[in-house]
Amino acid sequence: MKSILLIGLGRFGKNIAMKLREMNHEVMAVDRNEKRVNEIMPYVTNARIGDSTDEEFLKSLGIRNYDLCFVAIGDCFQDSLETTSLVKELGGKLVVARAASEVQAKFLKRNGADGVVFPEQQIARWAAIRYSSDHVFDYFAMDDDCAIFEVSVPDNWVGKSVGELNIRKRYRINILAIKADERIDMNITSETVLTAEENLLVLGKNKDMQKCFRI
């Protein structure tokens, strides 16, 4: 369990708060909008109404006491930048801020952000890949060149073993697990035979994935 400060309770911040609650973390949520604070109360440990660009207000939160500080402000980049800078100056151990562009990310990092997330870009990329292909069921980018895909077993792989297909050498792709009926089996050997009822969790470079699975 970690102690987390979450600043900004728009749709992105609210969803972070709800997920952190599922993970049993202690969350202090902050926003200047009273309605947003009231709505998030059932999902967090505590919540405060206040201006995160006000240094005295931030000091009252005890920034050094949190393991992680999320700056999830999305409606005003100036406020996000000032908040990020102040949180770091006041002793934020790990400060993660939301950005809408690479330019914003550069400014945030220069002003104290240890990490930056791009919610709009990330979900847009995921949706484009997920729904433009009939046999891709999920997608997670590791970096700009490498990703994990959940894909159906290609027709010409059905009934063949992993060793027989020689997937790693032939396609430069690693099978991490096999998913069937929402159960995940990570015990993959060269003798494992693939079936049409299964999905594969595979890791590789995007260009090799596109070529192999016609994404």
Results as ranks from 00 to 15, higher is better:
Asn65Phe: 07
Asn65Arg: 14
Tyr66Ser: 09
Tyr66Val: 05
Asp67Glu: 13
Asp67Cys: 05
Asp67Met: 11
Asp67Ser: 11
Leu68Asp: 02
Leu68Cys: 01
Leu68Ser: 00
Cys69Asn: 14
Cys69Val: 15
Cys69Leu: 05
Cys69His: 00
Cys69Glu: 15
Phe70Val: 06
Phe70Leu: 11
Phe70Asn: 02
Val71Asp: 14
Val71Ala: 09
Val71Cys: 07
Val71Glu: 14
Val71Ile: 15
Ala72Tyr: 06
Ala72Lys: 01
Ala72Pro: 09
Ala72Met: 03
Ile73Ser: 06
Ile73His: 09
Ile73Pro: 00
Ile73Leu: 14
Gly74His: 05
Gly74Cys: 06
Asp75Phe: 08
Cys76Trp: 06
Phe77Ala: 07
Phe77Trp: 10
Gln78Arg: 12
Gln78Cys: 00
Asp79His: 14
Asp79Phe: 08
Leu81Ser: 03
Glu82Cys: 08
Glu82Ile: 15
Glu82Thr: 15
Glu82Val: 15
Thr83Trp: 04
Thr83Glu: 12
Thr83Tyr: 10
Thr83Asp: 07
Thr84Ser: 04
Thr84Met: 09
Thr84Phe: 05
Thr84Pro: 01
Thr84Glu: 15
Thr84His: 11
Ser85Trp: 02
Leu86Asp: 09
Leu86Tyr: 10
Val87Trp: 00
Lys88Ile: 04
Lys88Val: 08
Lys88Trp: 02
Glu89Arg: 12
Glu89Ser: 14
Glu89Thr: 12
Leu90Lys: 03
Leu90Gln: 08
Leu90Ser: 13
Gly91Asp: 04
Gly91Thr: 06
Gly91Gln: 04
Gly92Tyr: 06
Gly92Asn: 07
Gly92Ser: 07
Leu94Trp: 13
Leu94Cys: 08
Leu94Ala: 02
Leu94Asp: 13
Val96Ser: 04
Val96Glu: 06
Ala97Gly: 01
Ala97Arg: 02
Arg98Ser: 06
Arg98Val: 10
Arg98Gly: 03
Ala99His: 04
Ala99Val: 02
Ala100Arg: 10
Ala100Val: 03
Ala100Cys: 09
Ser101Arg: 01
Ser101Val: 04
Glu102Trp: 01
Val103Ser: 04
Val103Asp: 12
Val103Gly: 03
Gln104Tyr: 12
Gln104Gly: 06
Gln104Trp: 03
Ala105Val: 04
Ala105Glu: 15
Phe107Met: 14
Leu108Arg: 09
Lys109Val: 07
Asn111His: 11
Gly112Leu: 10
Gly112Arg: 10
Gly112Pro: 12
Ala113Cys: 06
Ala113Ile: 08
Gly115Val: 00
Gly115Ala: 13
Val116Arg: 04
Val116Gln: 08
Val116His: 03
Val116Pro: 00
Val116Tyr: 05
Val117Asn: 07
Val117Cys: 03
Val117Ser: 09
Val117Tyr: 12
Phe118Ser: 05
Phe118Asp: 06
Phe118Lys: 07
Pro119Tyr: 12
Pro119Trp: 05
Glu120Lys: 05
Glu120Ser: 01
Glu120Gly: 01
Gln121Ala: 13
Gln121Asn: 08
Gln121Phe: 03
Gln121Ile: 04
Gln122Asp: 15
Gln122Ile: 09
